[in-house]
Amino acid sequence: MDQVRAYLTSQLLGNLAALLVMPILVVGVIQRVKARWAGRKGPPLMQLGYDLWRLARKRSVLSTTTTAVFQLAPYVVLVTALGSACLVPLAGGPALASFRFDFVWFAYVWGLGRVALILGALDTGSAFEGMGASREATFSAILEPALFLAAGALSLASGERELSLLLVPQVAGGAALVVWAGALVALVIVVQVEAARMPIDDPTTHLELTMIHEVMVLDHSGRELAAVQWASAIKLYVGLSVLATLMHPRTPGLPGVALHLGLCLALAAALGLSESLIARLKLRTIPQYLVVALSAGAVALLAALAMAGRLGILR
């Protein structure tokens, strides 16, 4: 009974509250930092929440060329984003759910969302959306191994098989530090791509020809648009939570929650700051940037293998 109550209070309520509030707040922090840097006041921190509420009450406009795929896609994207959120500690404590090798599930839940988004984009028959879909598919194909390399390395080094546990940082010794740093670099780039942030994608641009993620949702409106935008925010927060979990030791109780949430907000501010200071990459050079993630992941895996004494093959 106590266990159930503990689960309810710490795991369920904490994670759910974080899931509701933090994605919107994180987007607000990024916008605020960019606005301040540009000399503007910026929108309210919870602006995305108002926007979602506004959109959710609007009717959607559908092109006659679209089918049910187009209407269904945003909800698949939303559900997959929520699905991925279940596996990651969102408020410092344990995750909502975890099971052996759940990082595979995590990767392919994101993959499923991406496929749904791509199909929805292709369903419009628009040249813009087709280009965006092609870019998204190309870049995520390059990026997918990076996620597995990083997760595999962390899993091997820590001996854990669950995402929420293998992310807990272990930096005792040189090899462990290499694993940690390599995985961190790989995951930072994975989050940048998955959340469609600079320097890969410019979420604020109005230029359809340069967009990747944004162009795929150009035709969505009303409730569907709200679903996609909410899903993007959730994915961003899930990504930041993965990074934050990797960056702080697990601390029980309220200090742990505060540490985690504070770190997530700091990461969001850092993201906003980086987006304020640099221009976007040329589309042609993005694959090179993604290869950095692959290499970092590979380095982490090699170090993890060395730690586990399984590098005999190299001797």
Partner: peptide, 16 residues
Amino acid sequence: LAADVGFVPGASTYGR
């Protein structure tokens, strides 16, 4: 031009 390459300081300062 600064806005189109996503360079915030240029976009805002030149605009101002």
